[in-house]
Amino acid sequence: MDVEQRIRRLEDRIAISDLVVSYFVASDDDDSEGVAASFTADATFSSSGQLNAQGRDGIVEFIKSARSHMGMTVHTPNYVQCRFESPDRATGIVGAHLELVVGGVSVFGVVRYVDSYVRDGDVWRFQSRDMRVIHLAPWCEVGEAFASTTPVRWPGGEGAPSDYPRKS
């Protein structure tokens, strides 16, 4: 890669990191336009490998519906790892922690988003996002849940294994 291409790659990494933060802020702020601007028109959104929504409008409606059961939320990215497939396509892993009020219960969790990104004109957008849960539980259960074989404990649901169980 020549210097111009290397600089472009660095700029693209920063743009993708900014996309991740912009999506989290838009989601936390109930900014549907900001959420929509984060995705391509034909994007997909999944949770734990299960498709939740297709298309920009479908994703916005899915996020709105999910957030209708939530109070305050804080999504905080911890890292963004990108791998470029071409100048206009990349894949990534985003590690984040979540603080959410779900059904009146405060929860804390850690997730990894498995992403694909595309350059859409001059802007990077998500082509796909798959939120994978490492652990999540009501604040008062975090320590117990994290140390268990069922560290995913959404309020009102059954405990479930992590999408990333520890390998012995």
Rank of each mutant, 00 (worst) to 15 (best):
L19H: 03
V80S: 04
R132T: 07
D31E: 12
S168Y: 04
R6L: 15
R6H: 09
W139T: 13
R129C: 03
T73E: 03
G143R: 13
P151G: 06
T40I: 04
L98H: 06
G34T: 04
D115I: 03
F146I: 05
E85P: 05
V142M: 08
E141N: 06
W154S: 02
D29S: 14
D12K: 11
P161K: 14
S162C: 05
S148Y: 14
R153S: 01
V94M: 08
R112D: 00
D29R: 10
W154D: 02
R166M: 10
H75I: 07
D30W: 13
I59L: 03
V21C: 10
R129H: 03
A26Y: 02
R89S: 14
Y79E: 05
V118I: 15
P155R: 08
Y113H: 13
S32A: 15
H97M: 08
V114W: 02
V133Y: 10
Y23C: 09
T73Y: 00
V80M: 05
R83H: 15
P138I: 04
R8N: 12
S128M: 01
S38W: 04
K64F: 06
L19G: 03
R9S: 11
G157A: 13
V35L: 08
E4M: 12
R8S: 15
I7W: 06
G121P: 05
I93S: 07
S148V: 10
R119P: 00
